[in-house]
Measured scan of single mutants.
Amino acid sequence: TFVALYDYESRTETDLSFKKGERLQIVNNTEGDWWLAHSLTTGQTGYIPSNYVAP
């Protein structure tokens, strides 16, 4: 799992909003700078900017 370093507000319907400190499970990280992730807090799935999270 990864932890959010910053808050992120989604800009498209495929993005995932999250708050700093939220735990995220990475589903697919082969898309370059945008990873498909599942929030362990909200249960939602969407794309996140990879530079906003850390292991």
Results as ranks from 00 to 15, higher is better:
52 Y>I: 06
44 Q>Y: 08
16 L>W: 03
43 G>A: 05
23 R>W: 15
27 V>N: 06
34 W>A: 06
49 P>K: 07
51 N>Q: 13
55 P>L: 13
42 T>L: 03
51 N>D: 12
32 G>S: 14
17 S>N: 07
15 D>I: 10
38 H>Y: 15
11 R>A: 13
40 L>G: 03
10 S>W: 04
44 Q>N: 13
12 T>L: 12
4 A>W: 02
14 T>C: 12
41 T>E: 14
32 G>P: 15
49 P>G: 03
39 S>M: 03
9 E>G: 05
22 E>K: 00
19 K>C: 07
9 E>I: 13
9 E>H: 10
28 N>R: 08
14 T>P: 05
45 T>Q: 09
16 L>K: 01
6 Y>R: 13
26 I>S: 05
45 T>N: 07
37 A>R: 00
3 V>P: 01
46 G>W: 01
37 A>D: 00
40 L>T: 07
29 N>K: 14
40 L>Q: 07
17 S>C: 06
22 E>I: 00
39 S>D: 04
24 L>D: 01
13 E>S: 13
19 K>S: 09
25 Q>S: 09
53 V>G: 03
54 A>N: 08
46 G>R: 00
46 G>L: 01
45 T>A: 07
47 Y>G: 02
28 N>H: 11
29 N>G: 13
9 E>D: 12
34 W>L: 09
34 W>E: 05
19 K>D: 04
12 T>S: 14
31 E>I: 13
9 E>P: 05
24 L>G: 00
55 P>K: 08
20 K>E: 08
10 S>M: 06
34 W>C: 09
17 S>W: 04
17 S>L: 03
19 K>H: 09
11 R>C: 10
19 K>N: 07
39 S>C: 03
44 Q>T: 06
29 N>P: 14
44 Q>P: 00
14 T>W: 15
40 L>H: 07
54 A>T: 13
9 E>M: 11
6 Y>H: 10
17 S>F: 05
2 F>G: 02
43 G>C: 07
5 L>C: 06
34 W>Y: 13
1 T>K: 06
47 Y>I: 06
11 R>I: 12
54 A>D: 08
23 R>K: 15
55 P>N: 09
45 T>G: 05
7 D>K: 04
9 E>Y: 12
8 Y>W: 10
42 T>Y: 03
43 G>M: 07
47 Y>Q: 06
52 Y>H: 09
23 R>D: 08
13 E>K: 08
31 E>Y: 13
13 E>H: 12
16 L>D: 01
54 A>M: 13
31 E>W: 12
7 D>A: 06
38 H>C: 10
18 F>Q: 00
30 T>C: 08
49 P>F: 06
19 K>E: 06
15 D>R: 11
50 S>M: 08
1 T>L: 15
24 L>A: 00
45 T>F: 11
35 W>N: 02
54 A>P: 05
44 Q>R: 14
24 L>I: 07
32 G>E: 12
41 T>C: 09
